[in-house]
Amino acid sequence: MSNQYFESFVSELRDRLKEPLPGRTAQIRMAPKPIDENRFRENPMRPARLGGVMILLYPDRGGVHIPLMKRPEYDGAHSGQVSFPGGKLEDVDTDLVDTALRETHEEIGVPKDNVEVLGSLSELFIIASNFKVLPTIGVVRNKPNFIPDPIEVADVLPMPLAALKDPALRKVKEMKFPPYTIQSPYFDIHGEVVWGATAMMLSEFSYVVDEIEAKLQL
């Protein structure tokens, strides 16, 4: 991918994110089956906490990459899972975009001033942790020097954007959460299972990327 194509891609993505998003139509393609609409509904008696994550784009080896991160094992809903940098809205944050920028700096060492914010995808409610999360799309012009937080991050996993289009990397895994058994679509990234909310956000992003790439190839 040439620098000119990368800049054209970024410009088209910035414009596309100002338009209506595919939302649930795209998210649901990577949602665990059977589809449970309760996964998308907040409980009015238990207001959701707010969180922000960052889908950070950077050029590397002729393509576009996104850093995912593997969380360490801990006593919590997302122990050992692969996710985007991100976390809950704190008092120091002006909004959820600021949350995503702050967490990206804290968790993988990318300074917020280095990141150009292009826009956001659709919010997604995560029933397991009772979070409503806004995915922010950002870009840096050079491959970052990732500095993972030793407490919050077990590993940084660079994912080429091309992985979203590779059918061999889209798989399904049976998961048991007694008394329930689900069939969960996931992305196989570096041998890790990228599923749940992260996969659903990636699904919406993939939908948008497909539109942009089709336009740039005209």
Score class of each variant (00 low, 15 high):
Met1Lys: 04
Asn145Thr: 11
Ser206Lys: 12
Val110Trp: 01
Val193Gly: 00
Arg170Leu: 07
His65Ala: 05
Val194Tyr: 00
Asn43Pro: 05
Gly76Leu: 04
Leu218Met: 12
Gly86Met: 07
Gly87Tyr: 01
Pro67Arg: 04
Met69Ile: 10
Phe146Leu: 06
Ile55Trp: 00
Arg14Lys: 14
Ile189Asp: 00
Arg24Ser: 09
Glu19Arg: 14
Glu7His: 12
Tyr58Ser: 03
Ala128Thr: 15
Thr136Trp: 01
Ala214Gly: 11
Phe187Lys: 01
Lys171Ile: 04
Ile147Val: 09
Arg46Ser: 15
Leu101Arg: 05
Pro72Asn: 13
Val156Ser: 10
Ser79Tyr: 12
Asp98Tyr: 15
Asn38Ile: 15
His190Leu: 12
Phe40Trp: 15
His105Phe: 14
Leu124Trp: 11
Glu152Thr: 11
Val172Tyr: 12
Ile126Thr: 11
Thr99Asn: 11
Ala77Lys: 12
Glu152Phe: 10
Phe131Lys: 03
Pro135Leu: 01
Tyr5Ile: 00
Pro72Asp: 10
Phe40Gln: 05
Glu213Asp: 10
Glu73Ala: 14
Lys33His: 05
Gln27Leu: 02
Val139Tyr: 08
Gly63Phe: 09
Ala214His: 12
Pro47Trp: 15
Gly80Phe: 07
Ala154Glu: 15
Glu106Val: 11
Lys70Cys: 11
Arg102Gln: 08
Asn38Trp: 09
Pro67Gly: 04
Asn38Met: 12
Gly109Tyr: 06
Gly63Met: 07
Glu37Val: 14
Leu101Ser: 04
Asp60Leu: 13
Pro144Arg: 01
Phe6Glu: 07
Val193Cys: 04
Leu161Glu: 01
Val193Ser: 06
Asp75Arg: 15
Ile28Leu: 06
Ser79Gln: 12
Ala100Tyr: 00
Glu90Asn: 14
Lys143Arg: 14
Lys143Thr: 10
Glu103Ser: 06
Val156Met: 05
His78Ile: 11
Gln81Ala: 14
